[in-house]
Simulated assay, not measured.
Amino acid sequence: MGTHLSGVGAHRRGKVPAMGRELTGGTRILAGVGLAGAVGFLLVLDLERRDIRVVTKALPMICLLLWLWQPRERYSRWIFAGLALSLLGDVLLDVGPELFLPGLGAFLLAHVSYAAAYLTVTRRLHLARALPFGVLAVGASVALGPGLGGMALPVMAYVAVICTMGWRAWALMGAPGLARREQWLAFAGALLFAASDGLLSIKLFVRPLPGAGYAIMSLYWAAQLCIALSARGPGTSNSSVLDPGAAAKQTA
């Protein structure tokens, strides 16, 4: 696991800690608006008011994007891109069922962005850590397969990508260049995202899960918050996470 020495090393390399981590007035406002949006969406979750649903659902992600703005380093920029793509996916999925595939595509690209962020920290394979996610991908494909029909290819592609993202989040653990707290936040975000999408997949393609929407969205927002926090914590710098020397060590 990572230690505080990675933070010391970052300081010695002249990296400047990210600014604005303290709970400022602006942060409190964004947190309040985001929480209000989340609560509002859960209150209208079962109503046929797509206009209200789209607005309230988007608010938490908009607030996270505003809080993370302006991303200055590669890790933060990739995380920001993933959050923005997730916002797009949120809107597309709630506008109507005819936009399910574009929404799924937006989330697939979001996971690609998160995986790219994690790869800026370490490119070490950690194949043993890939194994559980490979098993998860195969198991999910087998469980969902009978109910997918014509959606089999895009859904299987999505499963493969989110499992890859989870693997790369676990590969962060113990890597230099990102503090231990931020490593855990990224990994927790990946696991929460997988749990949220797992419930959603069962609900859509296996059998109805009455009331599951509340758990799905709560897990989803918790996942995005953890991932965003990993890009704005005390272990994140305003320069590239991997310097050439660190990259050489990671690929050795």
Rank of each mutant, 00 (worst) to 15 (best):
L144D: 04
G149W: 09
V135N: 13
A117G: 02
S141H: 12
R129L: 13
F133L: 06
R124W: 05
V135Q: 14
L125S: 12
S141V: 13
R124I: 01
L131R: 12
H126W: 03
F133H: 02
G145W: 15
L119T: 02
A116K: 09
A143Y: 09
L144T: 08
S141Q: 14
L127C: 07
V121Q: 00
G145E: 15
L136N: 07
L119R: 13
G134Y: 02
L144H: 06
F133E: 00
G149R: 10
R124H: 10
T122I: 04
V138M: 08
R129M: 09
L119Q: 08
V121M: 01
G134W: 03
P146G: 14
L148K: 10
A130M: 10
G149S: 13
A143L: 14
V135W: 13
A143G: 12
R129A: 11
L144P: 05
V121S: 00
T122V: 05
V142G: 12
A128R: 14
L136E: 08
V142C: 13
T120D: 01
R123Y: 04
V135Y: 12
V121H: 00
T122F: 02
H126Y: 04
L119W: 05
T120Y: 00
Y118N: 02
T120K: 00
G147S: 09
G149N: 14
L127Q: 07
R129V: 03
L127R: 13
G145F: 15
G139D: 08
V138Q: 11
P132A: 04
G147P: 04
A128P: 02
S141W: 12
P146V: 14
S141Y: 10
F133A: 00
L131Q: 11
A117C: 05
R129K: 10
L119S: 04
A117W: 01
V142W: 15
A128Y: 07
L144S: 09
H126Q: 09
L136G: 06
G147Y: 03
G139K: 05
R129G: 13
F133N: 00
G147T: 06
A140W: 07
L148T: 09
A137W: 02
G134R: 03
R124S: 08
P132I: 03
G149D: 12
A137I: 11
G145V: 11
G149I: 10
G139H: 09
L144R: 06
A117P: 01
G147E: 05
H126T: 02
G134T: 03
A130V: 07
L131A: 15
L144M: 15
H126C: 04
L127G: 09
V142Y: 15
V138N: 05
L148E: 11
Y118I: 01
G149Y: 11
L144A: 14
A143D: 06
A143S: 13
Y118H: 07
V135R: 12
L119G: 02
P146C: 15
A130C: 07
V138L: 14
A140Y: 07
A143E: 08
G139S: 12
L125Y: 10
P132E: 07
L127I: 10
G147H: 06
P146I: 14
Y118V: 01
